[in-house]
Nucleic acid binder design. Sequence first.
DNA 1: AAAAGCCCCTGGACGC
DNA 2: TGCGTCCAGGGGCTTT
Length: 295
Amino acid sequence: MPELPEVETVRRGLEPVLVGQRFVSVEQRREALRFPFGTDFAERLEGKCVRTLSRRAKYLRAGLSSGESLVMHLGMSGRFLISEKKSPNSETLGDYIYETHADTKHDHVVFRMSGGRTVTYNDPRRFGFMLVIDDREFDAHALFRHLGVEPLSNQLSALHLAEKACGRRSNLKSFLMDQRIIAGLGNIYVCEALHHAQLSPNRGASCLADRFGKPTVRAERLVHAIRHVLTAAVKVGGSTLRDHRAPNGDSGQFQEAFAVYGRAGAPCPRSGCRGTVKRLSQSGRSTFYCSGCQR
DNA sequence: AAAAGCCCCTGGACGC
DNA sequence: TGCGTCCAGGGGCTTT
């Protein structure tokens, strides 16, 4: 499911449920998801208060009162479900509602919060993971050390792209998928941003820099397109293809606005363009683009 | 060092 | 209804 707009949607949905609340109980139902949860996973959370809930790339980070952080990644199919509680003022476990739904066999973690709600992590494919790490080790952690710039921050600039693209031999699609350059884009939003920028996914990434290493007009266009597409997607709660939902159950709407993703054979929606959306395979993943207007 | 391929896992869509 | 095949929003690891 989740690229930056979906993860941000989940963050916004979880924030009022987690922040300022304490973990009353943490039920870990299996040894590992993609990675082992680590020793004492539940114990390091129980009794701790959540101070902040932030997002870095496609990761969620809950900052705890203990000086540690709970890091969560949704992989391909992870989602959170929230249930209300029967008795708001009681912390008896029996008063917490564990809402049954169609897919409880993939409920891997259940958080019961002091505010009275139950937060359940469900993930059929188990490509997601959770772990608790010391805040002092966060920036140096192997998962985050090499992450590139946040695309919605002002760290994303034409100059940054030009510097990273200089001397590269990969194509634009792979370049934008590389989390060490820009962190948070995935297959959908790379395709959509390239279409918006009218750049071919096959074009070499080195087109973003001129022979002096300075950013080109294409780099400027790409930065604008990435910001535009991500901002529009966040605004409508991301894209729901299969399982993405905000924690309150709402589905995203951005799939309605896809220009190219998943639309092979359809006419290009750009006004004045008479091209057709094509699908091709790059580095083992589908790319959708219009050969008419993306050059 | 960069780039390509493989793999983790499950479920849904589709063809027969 | 059942079976086989292909595909999927991510990303770490290995190989070239």
